[in-house]
Design a protein around this nucleic acid. Sequence first.
DNA 1: TTGAAAGCGCTAACAA
DNA 2: TTGTTAGCGCTTTCAA
Lengths: 350, 350
Amino acid sequence: MPDDKDRPAPAQLPGQPRRRPQMVDIARLAGVSVATVSRALNGHPEISIATRERIAELARSLNYTVNAGAKNLRTKGNRTVAVVVPRDPAAPQPISDPFLLAMIGRLADALTSRGYDMLLSRTPADQIAALHASGTAVGIVQLGQWHDTGSLEAAARAGVPLVVWGAPLPDIGYCCVGCDNREGGRLATAHLLEQGRRHIAFIGDLSTPEPAERWQGHVAALQAAGLTPVPALHLTETTDLAHTRDTVQRLLDSGTPVDGIVCCSDILAIAAMAAVRAHGLRVPEDVAVTGYDDISWASHAEPPLTTVRQPIEPAADALVAALMQQAAGEVTASIVLPVELVVRRSSSRG
Amino acid sequence: MPDDKDRPAPAQLPGQPRRRPQMVDIARLAGVSVATVSRALNGHPEISIATRERIAELARSLNYTVNAGAKNLRTKGNRTVAVVVPRDPAAPQPISDPFLLAMIGRLADALTSRGYDMLLSRTPADQIAALHASGTAVGIVQLGQWHDTGSLEAAARAGVPLVVWGAPLPDIGYCCVGCDNREGGRLATAHLLEQGRRHIAFIGDLSTPEPAERWQGHVAALQAAGLTPVPALHLTETTDLAHTRDTVQRLLDSGTPVDGIVCCSDILAIAAMAAVRAHGLRVPEDVAVTGYDDISWASHAEPPLTTVRQPIEPAADALVAALMQQAAGEVTASIVLPVELVVRRSSSRG
DNA sequence: TTGAAAGCGCTAACAA
DNA sequence: TTGTTAGCGCTTTCAA
């Protein structure tokens, strides 16, 4: 006797929650077979209205819900998508980027409205394939490419439905949905140049792809104005808000002329503005600042922040749509969404 | 296209993903039974090192991962927790509250580190029991009580492991983890009174429990100072940032004296400060403002925001710990975490 | 219209 | 140390 089904069940031992009802219980009570219950609950047309309603009522009164795991096993179905924000086990950091968090919220809605469950996972990139191989998720949305494009390529090649939020790099072997970073960097810098700024700093870590592309746009805009980037004006130390603030402080202290700062996120911009003020300078009169993302409070900052808006809701929809296509067996091309410069007071003397 | 049909299928027809390997495949290749594979993969001690490694290697090379659904079905195991932010189907709103989003990020970490998957769900409160009944999740963390305490009580009574982020209401039939809202409201108001403010507005919607408790603390502090709340100074219209801004504007326009504003969230405070400035008044000189939550940018706001900190990481840990206890059959009492007033420039002339 | 029975991919009791 | 076998809760032929 392999399984212990004959063991007398304790009535209601505390700590032994009552067994959840299952189909066989409904069947017994309704005086029909489990097959009939299954058909009734799944709305098969051959079941008579009477029995169908009797069964539905029974299920309701017992708080019965079909076991999703067993159903999936049998039908090979799956209605779960994993949204992955990789966590580096060597340097674990909580998810704190407001843009990413807002994206997570939007993805939850986009997936819910399509009838999917969303698994929020912190699996490192080299293990995402297992989420699919184990049947946990039909597909994966990864937020950010970070430094591990190799694992992403491998997963995609192995047939894992996968869409990545990030810049579509040339010759990349997986589907990306991202914004036009080069244009974003160009727009911000060109705008500051139009405002008469000539000593423009850039804050962003070029070791990740998106800031690197924005930097290219930044340089292009400078060159179009006959300028070249000044190494001292490129700040890559952006681990956290306090750190960024220090870095900007040091730049201002160094005496290097600065009259504008292009930041790769709105939170970096907030830290930069705080540093500028701490230095006794005014935003935008002395130093103009631009952010990136247009997160919700950017327009309520003081001064309201000029920023490059990444359209978060269309992005979330595009990510989910592409993933659904892949799950249906189609091959999807990467998508580049347009960005938009939102001019507010942090950058314009007017 | 006459020949199309008979052409031999390409190795990797798009739309026909190759069948995922399963245990029987490994067994066949290794020349052993599936039981042996199962034991090897699960680290049973009785399997010889040699076969165990051979099997592990085989599994790796085939990208095989044990099917989680089948395993759960057999073992009655489940390593998924649902985190629910209810969505009102009548008035669907995306998750945009930064505090809630930050909490979601922290919960993801807390659950991951305990070896659980996190399902982020927007199920309405009256359906959360199904997440458990269907075996989708071992338990539920709901963020916010909103207006549906009845459904929560029903779920808890039905034996669903459930922990709610929110104020433990008296005689409530489920486990809450929340902060001391009454004390939070009291601290903020008492602080403004100490600063010499006498006309203190309060922004918060009393139809939800947490702001209601903060209001009690607010009133208590006023009374301790010999004051009584002025109805005109209580603003409940807090649907979004722009709306809040308008409401505060109208209050200032009305001529009602105001020299302090206690807000039930940091984003409300940001909107309030913007309104004050738009009215030509200064923060904190003319109007002192306090927020609630201490989200990450509160200290970088201009002026930096005085706020009541809710300890988000301990809260996430407490939510998860309580849920684990319940899943283990224990009964858990509600937990009230202490709050802390963080004084910054938005409230103090100094 | 309904029931009997097989089997989804896996684990574990029992036997060898 | 390994294989045989039953069965987790469900859906779906096939037969009645």
